[in-house]
Design a protein around this nucleic acid. Structure first.
Lengths: 206, 206
DNA sequence: ATTAGCTATTGACACACTGACAACAACTTG
DNA sequence: CAAGTTGTTGTCAGTGTGTCAATAGCTAAT
């Protein structure tokens, strides 16, 4: 008989194992609501003992927060490619880039933005708020509103509000198919142009 | 000694008891995330046995859905009070009415719409989608876009997208206090006016 | 007033899930 | 090849949920 013994499990680098578990968790949390995904399910999916999840993420909640954090992270725009024309053109470019990002994320993206409903988790809310803030900041810089720096706080708040429309429009396009990309592009471009070019100055004058 | 015996508990009409439990659940779910509110907590709050919750709502999830349904229901606008002027005026009136509703709900409202996170409950999503649809429908009728009836589907989709901005702007105003009501009013009015008066015709021509 | 019937409400039981921890085994290093 | 390191496992106690038979508040008939 052979002394060659197949190891019952492989010992991975902490980072690898963490990543693997996280991937499975992302998949499962994307399919079912939080309460209906047990750590046992995740452990089975990852082919791992349940206790290992606690070892790496502390608790189920900790793992969940990691998942949210991961899915909500948005890449930063390459600002060197932004045209140097009038506001409308810069806005159009930015919106186009935004829709590219959304398109690339596709199903994963909508899983994040699907409304959860009652029962706010302050921690989750904080993560989401930070992501919104970064997205708004990013958008403002990309369209290059350098001349309104002193009113930055108000501007960012308004752009964050606009972000709500971006998400909703994205859902109409990606998940419901009730709007085409061209339609969304047109709507968001015109809206944002008006918002930055006309409405915002009016708001400042209030 | 008196034969007068104080009842250990009162027997209520099913509807009353249901309502009472629902009220307590709304309060608690508004304060803490779903997973951190136990049925025991709700039962204690309502001064009732835990089993009774299951009797009335089947499961904790069933109760939760009821809570969401209740909080998300938006009153229908009184269309007789809408002015008969140009689009901009009708829009301003509608937005004002909308902000009144939001203001009245206040903290409760943001508790529902505030958190978006991973772990979508399809049932919850359906409820929210229906509410969005009704709100959009309501808004379209209130501003009186009768002349575009044939393109109703596209218009409603666009207005639903706008609804995303309403929610986000409402959060900036109510929870974060980063915008005043006047600012929100101005932004939403101008945006919606542009959207209906200019952008929508462009979209139709696509 | 008393009793009988109805059902709203309770209390306890069984089961599922989570987090903690000590023992174990895969891998590394000298 | 031996000894240490630590990634991984399996189990245990505590907590929360759903079910169900028994109980008790209420009402109407006698």
């Amino acid at each position: 008989m052979s002394t060659e013994t197949e190891p019952r499990w492989r010992r991975l680098e902490p980072d690898q194992r963490r990543e693997q578990i996280l991937d499975c968790a992302i998949r499962l949390f994307g399919e079912r609501p939080y309460a209906e995904v047990s750590t046992t399910d995740i452990a089975r999916e990852a082919g791992v003992a349940r206790g290992l999840i606690n070892h790496y993420f502390g608790s189920k909640r900790g793992l969940y927060l990691e998942v949210v954090r991961r899915m909500v992270t948005v890449p930063v725009a390459d600002r060197s490619a932004v045209p140097d024309g009038p506001l409308a053109e810069r806005v159009e470019f930015s919106v186009d880039w935004l829709l590219d990002v959304i398109s690339a994320r596709g199903k994963t993206w909508v899983a994040v933005l699907g409304t959860e409903g009652v029962g706010n988790d302050p921690e989750v809310e904080r993560i989401l708020a930070e992501a919104d803030e970064m997205a708004a900041e990013n958008l403002v810089r990309t369209v290059g509103m350098r001349d309104v720096e002193p009113a930055g706080a108000e501007l960012r708040a308004i752009v964050r509000a606009f972000g709500g429309m971006v998400k909703a429009a994205g859902r109409e396009w990606i998940t419901h198919g009730t709007l085409t990309r061209e339609q969304v592009q047109l709507v968001l471009t015109e809206q944002l142009t008006t918002l930055l070019g006309e409405t915002f100055p009016h708001v400042q004058r209030l």
